[in-house]
């Protein structure tokens, strides 16, 4: 049995761990509210842009369609754009995104396709580098930025698009964690190049719409912006998910630490009592011997 002193030290150490997890939980709860509000505020723009792109894409077809919409005509090389967080202490948040990306990569390789990775954020880099050595073609570092925002999304989208136009890949998929609630975050895959047009795209309203300059020019202007906004949305969803996952994980950790403290305290009290009893027995038997 551990000595009294050891138990005491152990309890103190678990208590300080609990303080850390408790603090992290409260920080995550506060940040979650902010991240959630940011994700909601970004929704109107994304929705409207998506609607416009969908209605235009229906009108522009054939050879005149921009390459971002039509694709390269091949689908041999796939780029997996994996958006992760920079910090741990958030449960399975990063692991789930990486797992989804790795599963997709395995499926694509099994089909005989070439897979490349482009990573955002610090987490997950090691796992992917180990599983698919030499497949990481680029990464975007967000460690210096407090909350990745539109500027970062623009830089990422520009980098990825220029790689597309340089012919480095044919199809790009984006992996991030969609925020459902503080308890549920869902790793999500989305094709961003060529732009996937939702099947339920609103058909043209019939009203004659005038375009200035023309449909192709507007679409060519909007498509790169659409990619930026998809990346931006993914970054925001990721932030909300990360805080949600972190809050849940830290809540669990705090509770576990509490249980552990209770158990250790009981053990400590028992050993203390046992020690006292032994001492008493020794004194009494000593006195009786006289």
């Amino acid at each position: 049995m551990a000595s009294l002193k050891e138990l005491k030290l152990r309890i103190a150490s678990v208590k300080s761990t609990q303080k850390i997890t408790k603090a992290k939980q409260m920080v995550a709860a506060a940040k979650l509210r902010k991240a959630q509000a940011a994700a909601e505020a970004a929704r109107p723009y994304a929705e409207r842009l998506e609607g416009v792109v969908a209605s235009l894409a229906g009108k522009v077809t054939g050879d005149s369609a921009p390459r971002l919409l039509a694709g390269t005509g091949k689908d041999n090389v796939h780029l997996l754009l994996v958006a992760n967080g920079d910090k741990g202490l958030s449960g399975a948040f990063n692991a789930n995104i990486v797992k989804a990306a790795v599963a997709k990569a395995r499926a694509l390789i099994a089909e005989g396709k070439t897979v490349k990775f482009y990573l955002v954020g610090r987490k997950g880099r090691a796992v992917i580098a180990r599983t698919f050595p030499g497949k990481i073609v680029g990464q975007y570092d967000t460690t210096e930025v407090r909350t990745p925002g539109f500027t970062e999304a623009q830089a990422i989208a520009q980098d990825v698009s220029s790689r597309f136009f340089a012919g480095e890949f044919d199809v790009a998929h984006l992996f991030y964690s969609a925020f459902k609630s503080a308890l549920a975050q869902e790793p999500t895959e989305q094709q961003i190049i060529p732009v996937a047009i939702p099947a339920d795209a609103p058909a043209s309203t019939g009203a004659a719409v005038e375009y200035e300059p023309d449909e192709e020019a507007i679409l060519a202007d909007l498509l790169p912006r659409n990619i930026t906004i998809q990346v931006f949305k993914a970054l925001l969803e990721n932030q909300a998910s990360e805080q949600g996952a972190s809050m849940t994980a830290m809540d669990n950790a705090t509770r576990n630490a509490g249980d552990l403290i209770n158990r250790l305290t009981i053990e400590y009290n028992r050993s203390r009592q046992a020690a006292i009893t032994t001492e008493l027995v020794e004194i009494i038997s000593g006195a009786e011997a006289l």
């Binding site: 416009v52 005038e210 375009y211 200035e212 300059p213 507007i218």
Partner: peptide, 19 residues
């Protein structure tokens, strides 16, 4: 300020898209 010139929009304007 449209790319091909400024334009004003009042109520009842015809459907229109511009950069």
């Amino acid at each position: 300020p449209g790319t091909e010139g400024e334009f004003g929009v009042l109520e009842g304007h015809a459907p229109f898209m511009s950069t």
